[in-house]
Simulated scan of single mutants.
Amino acid sequence: MIDTQEFNARLEGLQAVLRERLRLRGRTLEAQLRHAGRRLPKRQRRAGAIILGAQDWMAHPKLARVLDISQVNTAFADLHAYLDGIDPKEDRKTAILRLLGGMVLNLALLAGGLMLLLWWQGAL
């Protein structure tokens, strides 16, 4: 049987990690996982569903006794392992570089189009 206080502490820790690493807002773990959507791989989304199901079962004392502890522990470990590998600073830097790269590509295409237009009009 899982201790309710320990389980709730692990839930709060997971919520804090989701808030820190993925910048997910939400009052509950369910809201955070819903906001995460496809940012989490399929395996981690399943682990989140297992944890949410366990959270529902922990609200009922008789159901909490028959909860599969190993499955819940594996789900927590799986989510933490994935989230520990995420670097928020690196993600931010990658997003900025992708934005700048897209701008440079668009400007290069615009300049090429203008050069082609000028050549076609005989100005070059």
Rank of each mutant, 00 (worst) to 15 (best):
A54E: 03
E90R: 12
A64P: 00
E20L: 06
K89T: 13
R65K: 11
W57H: 09
G53P: 06
V17H: 00
T28I: 08
L109V: 15
P41E: 12
T4G: 00
R10A: 10
I86Y: 05
G102H: 05
R34D: 11
V72C: 00
I96Q: 08
P41K: 09
D91T: 02
L97Q: 10
L100H: 06
N8Y: 05
R23K: 09
W120A: 13
L18V: 07
Q121F: 11
D3F: 08
R98A: 15
L79R: 01
L67G: 02
D68A: 10
L97I: 12
V104S: 06
L14D: 00
A75E: 03
L33T: 01
M58P: 10
D87F: 09
R23S: 14
D3K: 06
Q5P: 01
Y82T: 00
A36D: 04
M103Y: 10
G112P: 06
A111L: 14
A36C: 11
V104E: 11
A108H: 14
G85P: 03
M115Q: 13
Q55C: 04
L33N: 02
F7C: 00
F76D: 01
M115K: 11
R19M: 05
W57V: 03
T74R: 15
L105C: 15
S70Y: 08
H60S: 09
P41V: 14
T74Q: 15
R43V: 03
N73Y: 08
L11H: 02
G112Y: 10
A111V: 14
D78G: 05
V66S: 09
A81P: 01
L22K: 05
I69V: 15
L22I: 03
S70K: 11
L107P: 02
L79Y: 01
